[in-house]
């Protein structure tokens, strides 16, 4: 199925969770940064993992760049993901981590280094290009995770609580850096967080998870749009 539209469309999403059902119908156009707000355990990370292809939904379709991707394997979805714990690969150095997506797409080493250098410089990591990721601070690790998710120009960027483990000052800095990076590659973005400040700073569209009604004794939660700017 193809809608002929750019961006992300989620239609008739349904997933049975522990104790509730999660439903969603939304779209994120090209260049829009959507923030999904919700409490811990509300199902927002699950939604993100389903979009990334890591988990399966019970029903619904996901269309990205006009292409139905529900049945596409995660590695072929062209979606960049920033995980809550960064999930950097400890066996690889900063450069190798940052350019991993390019490497998987057959880009030569020289090209990868040439492509990554400006990104690393922009985020102040160029001096640590070949350092072990285990030697980086929390903020530096997060920067590497941002570059890794974006440098290969995915069609969608998903971020799972990317600032949750950082202090307020660093959080502010990284939000600005993320905005800056997004300008370089203005794909649709979906960021899930429980922090209203993240939403305030980053969102062009806000979603939230609301409890709507109980059906057959089960709680129903629905992703709804909070406002648009």
């Amino acid at each position: 199925m193809s809608s002929g539209k750019e961006g992300l469309q989620v239609r008739g999403f349904f997933k049975k969770m522990d104790g509730f059902d999660l439903r969603a119908d939304f779209e994120i156009p090209q260049g829009v940064r959507a923030v999904l707000l919700g409490k811990s355990g509300s199902g927002k990370t699950t939604l993100l993992r389903v979009l990334a292809g890591i988990e399966k939904a019970d029903a619904g379709s996901v269309v990205l760049g006009g292409k139905e991707i529900s049945q596409v394997s995660p590695k072929d979805r062209d979606i960049g993901v920033v995980f809550q714990e960064q999930a950097l690969f400890p066996a690889l150095d900063v450069m190798e981590n940052a350019t991993f997506g390019l490497r998987m797409r057959g880009v030569s080493r020289d090209e990868r280094v040439a492509l990554a250098d400006p990104w690393l410089k922009r985020l102040g990591l160029h001096k640590q290009s070949f350092a072990a990721v285990t030697q980086l601070s929390g903020g530096e690790r997060q920067r590497v995770a941002f570059i890794r998710a974006l440098i290969w120009k995915p069609k969608l960027l998903l971020l799972d609580e990317p600032f949750s483990a950082l202090d307020a000052e660093l959080r502010q800095t990284l939000r600005l850096e993320l905005l800056d990076l997004h300008k370089q590659w203005p794909v649709p973005v979906l960021l899930v967080t429980h922090d209203a400040e993240d939403a305030q700073a980053l969102a062009t569209v806000k979603f939230q998870i609301e409890t709507s009604r109980a059906a057959e004794g089960r709680e129903q939660r629905v992703v709804t749009q909070a406002f648009s700017s």
Binding site: R49, A52, G53, I54, S73, P74, K75, D76, R77, I79, G80, V81, F83, Q84, E85, A87, L88, F89, A91, L92, F100, G101, M104, R105, R148, A149, W152
Partner: peptide, 22 residues
Amino acid sequence: PQEELDAAQSLGAGVLCRFRFV
């Protein structure tokens, strides 16, 4: 950590690459 495997997969790593790098 499963997240490392998920991350590698989302970046395009197939079975062999996930084995090799993660």
